[in-house]
Design a binder for these strands. Structure first.
Lengths: 238, 238
DNA sequence: GTCTATACACAGATAGAC
DNA sequence: GTCTATCTGTGTATAGAC
């Protein structure tokens, strides 16, 4: 496989060294008042077990189908132990959504500021999104599936996040037209369906892993697909 | 708007006159033994209320978050009344999935047998899928979201249904290459992402209706998008 | 910081009146 | 064919020992 931009999943991981520990540390930092455990090391370790268990159970039964007893058993913490980290089941859900969105937002924001022409920026945006969703796939899946069962406030937050990504793509498409690089299409609809294809990667994991399709292959396919629609002068120039 | 194939949502509705009553009648016919109510008219009327209520509640809380008391209140039937139609909450879920899949399968099957060249067949397949999901959107959404919480057997059934649609698209794409009409792309991946764009239409209803995008506009956009990737000789020939 | 034991609300389901 | 009343298990959450 050849990548015009040289950006691959391995390189991305190497550069950012993102993992679920970072995610758990964020949760701890942003919830110091409500989390009763004060030692960071202990908290991060247990939060990690709680989240892993949550994602595992919810991917089968959904959040509302998971009982705190289930969670206690799967995470290895006792009932009382769990409630030292979250005051209620609802708070667990809201925290996961909020911190997760924040986490992703930060990385996409940084990426979106990278320069270059529209074509390059589109490639980078698509890859970054796919790579992030590859690293924290369980969170992406969870967030998507449980968005509807959150409180009004948190649900609105989720929708904003969805529109944020769409807008990043939209801006790049418009930039491309200005630069005379992209065709003038229905950008809003284009951004919307591009987003849906990005989401398919973490929503249909069962399908893609069975077929042994790597994230890089998926990324290159998507980029080719989109460019054939958008690029006035096609082909690999790099 | 101009449609090469003349197929529009209104025309589709006119031809098939599909509605949720047909869906409820199917449920009644296929579950005569377990449904205690024997008068078709009564049964269909109440099933319709039960399903409407189920879809409404589950779109907010998910199936596992819906209690039978919720359902009783929203549907207007008493607790005892509900259990005259379904022996358990689980059975309600499984029946909805099974009959729904059967319902959709039948219509896509018929459509897929329609002749013509690959380009025409692709157009028709895409439109039929979108139109069906427009008519019974609540069911599509429900089925997608609750697939994970079903029993093994029913979940496999769901996956089969997903792959069935993908395969219909796949066959058309391959036919197009044989006929020299389509480019030779990664058909499996193409079929997969096309499916995801079809699904976006019923999964993100909140977005598309706020933007006042009609199903026909969405359909034409998708077709244009896909054809730019696949068609060797582009443009409207019809 | 983590556990066990327990309170009490609410779930799914059914029996039997009408 | 539909309702009300009720059984019993499980749910979330907490108090208090260690």
């Amino acid at each position: 496989m050849s990548f015009e931009d040289g950006l691959t999943f391995d390189a991305f991981q190497e550069e950012f060294r993102l993992g679920k520990e970072d995610f758990c540390r964020d949760v701890f930092q942003e919830n110091r008042e409500t989390i009763q455990i004060k030692k960071e090391k202990t908290a991060v370790k247990n939060l990690s077990r709680i989240f892993d268990a949550t994602f595992r159970i919810c991917s089968r039964k959904g959040f509302r189908g998971m009982s705190m007893r289930d969670l206690s058993q799967e995470s290895g913490l006792s009932m009382g132990g769990l409630y030292a980290y979250f005051r209620s089941k609802e708070e667990l859900l809201n925290t996961l959504q909020r911190v997760g969105n924040h986490f992703i937002h930060r990385h996409l924001e940084t990426t979106s500021r990278k320069g270059g022409d529209a074509r390059q920026r589109l490639r980078i945006m698509i890859k970054t999104h796919l790579y992030l969703s590859e690293i924290v796939q369980p969170w992406f899946y969870f967030s998507y599936m449980e968005a509807k069962s959150m409180s009004r406030k948190e649900r609105d937050f989720y929708k904003q996040a969805e529109l944020f990504t769409e807008n990043l793509i939209l801006k790049i498409l418009k930039q491309g037209v200005k630069e005379g690089q992209f065709a003038d299409q229905d950008h809003q609809l284009a951004a919307s369906v591009i987003k849906s294809m990005l989401q398919d990667w973490y929503l249909k994991r069962w399908k893609y892993s069975k077929r042994e399709i790597s994230v890089d292959r998926y990324a290159e396919f998507l980029i080719g697909f989109i460019e054939s629609f958008y690029c006035l002068s096609q082909g690999s120039e790099g």
